[in-house]
Amino acid sequence: MAVAAAAVAAAADRVATKMADVIRVEQLQRVYHLGAVDVPALRGIDFAIPQGQMVAIMGPSGSGKSTLLNLLGCLDRPSGGKYLLAGEDVGLKTDDELAEVRNARIGFVFQNYNLLPQLTALENVELPLVYRGLSASNRRRKAEAALASVGLGDRKHHRPLELSGGQQQRVGVARALAGEPDVILADEPTGNLDSTSGQEVLRLFLDLHRAGSTIVIVTHDDEVALYTERTIHLRDGIVVSDGPIPSEQRRGLDERGAS
């Protein structure tokens, strides 16, 4: 009886973890081997990001935030510790399995948009769905919905170079959204934009957050962090602070309060 109860409890715990935390890292480490020298980029990091949270990961260059982003994005494997994405340990997967995880669970937004210039906005948004193996009509429907949700429903046949930087980044966000991922990972999403366009993109993230998306933004821009409800600061490969931004500073909440 006791064993069964324990098993049920463990199962319940797993379910709870799965439900609550989209991302959970435990003692996450990443060591780069440069010749004979081992360079630790991440030296044991712990945090969990629950479903629906909007988090900024900050730190100066060399702090390990790019390394952390690569790990969270399943582009890289940890040297030690554990990374649970939606309850699933992704540390031991093969390259092709990681590709599947990226395709199904993660939506990337890049600093330089990374749109393919020869494709239209709609085709760019469809791209992750192509690799998911969806039918053409299904892809189109989802991509159109995603483009509409970033306010570019009328620009779907434009090519990236015919769009402004802000619009291009919104196409990038739509591409991240189209696959209905568990988490959106944004790497300096406003880094290439003027402040007006940057604010537009951040408001877009805020809207998505309100609609329930889990969003992680890696940035060194304090301004960006003001839109999020939580900031994780990294320095020299460890977390130096992790907590909410005081509410009087938070733009997002101000606006939410105003509206």
Binding site: N103, L116, P128
Partner: peptide, 16 residues
């Protein structure tokens, strides 16, 4: 190279 990187990041397998 960038295009290939992007395609892989959004879920293209090696075979694709």
């Amino acid at each position: 190279t960038r295009e290939i990187g992007l395609r892989k990041a959004i879920g293209a397998k090696r075979s694709a």
